[in-house]
Design a protein around this nucleic acid. Sequence first.
DNA 1: ATGCTAATGCAACTGGAGTCGCATTAAGGG
DNA 2: CCCTTAATGCGACTCCAGTTGCATTAGCAT
Lengths: 198, 198
Amino acid sequence: MDASGVQPTSRPGGRTARTRAAVRDATLAELAVHGYAGLTVEAVAARSGVHKTTVYRRWGGVDGLVVDALALADEDGWAPPDTGSFERDLRELAREVVVTFAGTPASAAFVAAAFQSERAAAALRDFYAERHRRSAAVVTRAVERGEVPAGTDAGAVVKAAVAPFYYRVLIAGEPATEDLADQSAAAVAHAARAGLYA
Amino acid sequence: MDASGVQPTSRPGGRTARTRAAVRDATLAELAVHGYAGLTVEAVAARSGVHKTTVYRRWGGVDGLVVDALALADEDGWAPPDTGSFERDLRELAREVVVTFAGTPASAAFVAAAFQSERAAAALRDFYAERHRRSAAVVTRAVERGEVPAGTDAGAVVKAAVAPFYYRVLIAGEPATEDLADQSAAAVAHAARAGLYA
DNA sequence: ATGCTAATGCAACTGGAGTCGCATTAAGGG
DNA sequence: CCCTTAATGCGACTCCAGTTGCATTAGCAT
């Protein structure tokens, strides 16, 4: 599938690439200032210097802008932590979530977009599926080291460790701290070692 | 605070009450069919037989409609399970989340609304704060029975147990099953008994 | 270089969300 | 029962997101 969500072009030359980059940058800037609820095609067009008709034609609307921005995040070379210790890996994973939400204003916007648009929802599902696929290595290595019993559900472990932060920040509207990351990682690691995620 | 979010009326007589009930019902019906993204004041007005001007005046917009509907859920007499066992209580709590999301189309809409409107976000925060306040009894009773060490953070325990379901259903876009509820409850109970949420 | 055409720019148009001023209805007090 | 006025009904109006037809610019092949 076309990871970007933007219609492929048969003429990917200089101007087209410049347009796309300008729109992408403008989208992230607008998201940082106004959030998804305040994201408008018109503002992105004005900020990027690209005509709004062009934005509508190539991105389809605000949801397409977000999908394109999300595809960027998917293309980064992210890899899960590898500290040599299961619990420390989980802790780093959880801390990363906290830091990302605090430092990347667009992250909550991606979730907000998913609630408004099926296209954005599909892109977000793909994004998280890929993250979880990569994160499974944390559990695999723990099994190899004998820290965790074989047959442990890697996906369930990773999701249990990070879910409280998404829940607090996005659903319940509470702040999340790194202390909570330590607590969550310790609790999940303890249960996983006992074989409760098998 | 005015739990409903609707402007209080100095004439709460028959017609006003009928109007509000009709609009509330229409809102829930529209949410069930179109979700929050497809919720329009015009459709609610048409379905309820109330003029759209009235809806705008009393509810302010689509977000107000959702806030009012959410206030209803807040007024129910919900109480956390009390099975006599810590782990079974947690399991019931988690299963309730799964069942509610499967059976109440409006539940996801409340979260979606919170991403679009500060009013809705505040209402949802209040809703969850109240839920957690009531749920803390599960942990309190477990402490009294000696199942869990004193000083355990009740909020953290409850959130850890239910967060994976919100995460899966709302963020990652995966289905949630009752089997996962059992797994989550067992893992959290195990960690709590070990004093990891103190 | 030059012609073809994909990609973009541009302005006018459409449609629906939300507002406003005024008319009408009915709740509640006397 | 009648009077006051809160609450609602009603239609016209504004405003902005999104669309459309046509003009212009610039990739890319020859």
